[in-house]
Write a protein that binds this DNA or RNA. Structure first.
Lengths: 362, 362
DNA sequence: GTAACGGATGAATCAAGAG
DNA sequence: TCTCTTGATTCATCCGTTA
């Protein structure tokens, strides 16, 4: 289901089916309230936003516009889908309030810190050097996708935080017509990469109802996701269509979420049945201080491997797979290693060493 | 008018006069719902603690609480006063929306990026590593105080942006009772220093209606401002009172806004009257390409010095004081240098070399 | 070729005070 | 409240041109 629509969002959205989309990115008009021209000190005009599509009569009008599309969006979202909306101080407090009123549940507000913002020419306030993104789900109980390990890896082995420093969209990345910017507010690819990698799975459907020059569908395609885009203005639509067609799918295990694919849970009794362990086999700790016999229910003296390993170490809980060993050819072998063999042969799951510690890379 | 009140904010605020305060900082108490009632949550307001916030009823109650104090605050604010409110994603979108609905005008939203945030142990979302501050004024036309040069100086010579990286309040700065932190959400002093230095003048009155352990009045005192603080809980009030009493006023020219005192505007006709320029004197550009005679109205061929200098450079506007020169002892002398002499001798204003260009430090 | 230089530009609620 | 005068004000980056 890859599709780009030319037309008004409010006419296209009703065509989309209930609960059909996994991830949505919305970059709505910001309702900038500027008057006149802003002149730089060198005496040239600043080319800001002065577009018909950003003009609203009042907060009420803007709110109604927002409520109208968000209601449609909520209908289209799958039960556990994620929605991201970007804005700045002019509009984000309207949007956040409406999202909460409509029952959406905020997971994070993310700050896009611009490393090279437009300066404040007149020295009248702090340089506006960030935009805000809201990541929300349909309701409090949604089991949303969050590829924690992938993002930690991308962040150099540390948990990714709520402030992302990314340059503004410029240079080769910026779509141009006749050498001038085609769209006044094209978003950087890195922003969409983060969003799509963090909160979707391969082949998920990604929707952008105000796609502009098509950053969202282009990056979705690159990362192996499906895409739906909607754009009203033909000049933007044509550029987006061409851009998405020329975008290549990039093959990268990271984009297939290998770091975040959960391994299948394994019952020791199944491993006994398949011959990976024997009934009454001895389980030992690394230093061979303790020896317990494995019973046919996969327990050690009636305890789970986890609970017993925790008790022996005076801890509240512990992962028994990393504590117990068995003897093979008279040598100690970790039961975790045997589980990896089981995963590979019996479930097809290929174990990848994953990053669990600070500064640890794959 | 330095005063700390022990009592409920909603009982104390009505005592304060209309248009009597220059700067307000609000760190509103967070509430959580238990058995249908909102109670103060002591600031520990993230994950787990806010389980009840999906009920719209609690939003409504929180909104009403917010509207109630903001209306009082607006009454107390001077015409050109500034108001700052801090919050996080659970409440800031309620507050921002209400501020706009009440006619407040947003100047900036500021991100306090915590350089040492509490990690997210569950790995279910991005680590929440920031809080949001809203800087608003009473209405769109307010002539607010913004000490641009002071903040630029504090930021190493470059204009300060909307993302501030500041550590969380810890160490000696943290108020403690019996070795344990006295208040759950004490704000760092640096945050209040920035706010007070940026948006108030010496001797301005700074109000904090939920002062907690008194960070706002303490920093206001340190920086040579007046303060009013309100706190309901006696244990916090007592700590705040002691803290403010022990705080010392720091003498620093920077805190007296010397960098942001505006020079008096000067009429060229006055400078002619006082003999700094002569009628019919030649005004030249730096390269002596152009020569114009100064008429008795302070014009050059009927144009202002600014307008003509802009036209000659094919610009929309320009500061003529930095363009024109006169001959003194057969040498070119900038008219800006002569203005500085005029300022010093005729108005008492001592010019301080201020930073006007990129990479230029004071 | 390569380094140095200079122009262009980006979601912007962008002036203040006297008369 | 409106008009007019005075005069204050930018940073990081990309890209094309010059040395």
């Amino acid at each position: 289901m890859n599709k780009l629509f030319l037309g008004d969002t409010f006419e296209i959205l009703p065509v989309l089916k209930d609960e059909s989309v996994d991830l949505i990115f919305i970059d709505p008009p910001y309702f900038m309230q500027t008057e006149g021209n802003l002149i730089r000190s060198e005496g040239t005009f600043f080319d800001g936003i002065n577009e018909e599509w950003d003009k609203f009569g009042s907060f009420e009008e803007y709110d109604n516009f927002t409520i109208k599309y968000l209601k449609e969006i909520k209908r289209i979202m799958k039960k556990n889908a994620s929605l991201w909306i970007i804005g700045s101080f002019q509009n984000i407090y309207r949007i956040g309030n409406i999202l909460q009123n409509l029952g959406f549940w905020i997971i994070n507000d993310i700050i896009w810190k611009k490393s090279n913002p437009t300066p404040n020419f007149k020295g009248t306030r702090f340089t506006n050097s960030h935009e805000t993104l809201l990541w929300v789900v349909k309701n409090k109980n949604a089991k949303y996708t969050f590829n924690y390990k992938t993002m930690k890896y991308l962040n150099g082995g540390k948990q990714m935080g709520s402030v992302w420093e990314i340059p503004i969209c410029a240079g080769k990345e910026r779509v141009k017509t006749n050498g001038k910017k085609a769209h006044p507010s094209q978003k950087p690819e890195k922003l969409l990469e983060n969003i799509i990698l963090a909160t979707s799975k391969p082949k998920d459907v990604v929707l952008d109802p105000f796609m502009g020059v098509g950053t969202t569908p282009a990056i979705a395609k690159r990362l192996g996701r499906k895409y739906v885009g909607i754009e009203k203005e033909k000049k933007y639509f044509d550029l987006a269509k061409k851009r998405v067609e020329e975008e290549k799918v990039v093959e990268n295990p990271l984009y297939k979420n290998v770091l975040d694919i959960k391994p299948p849970k394994v019952k020791i009794t199944d491993m006994i049945k398949k011959g990976y362990f024997k009934e009454n086999e001895n389980f030992l700790d690394k230093d061979e201080n303790f020896i317990f016999k494995l019973d046919k229910n996969g327990k050690l003296q009636g305890n789970s491997i986890h609970k017993l390993s925790a008790e022996l170490q005076n801890k509240i809980n512990f992962n028994g797979w990393e504590y117990w060993y068995v003897k093979r050819d008279n040598k100690l072998v970790s039961i975790n290693k045997i589980r990896k063999e089981y995963w590979k042969k019996e479930t097809g799951y290929e174990h990848i060493n994953r990053c669990n510690r600070q500064y640890c890379h794959i």
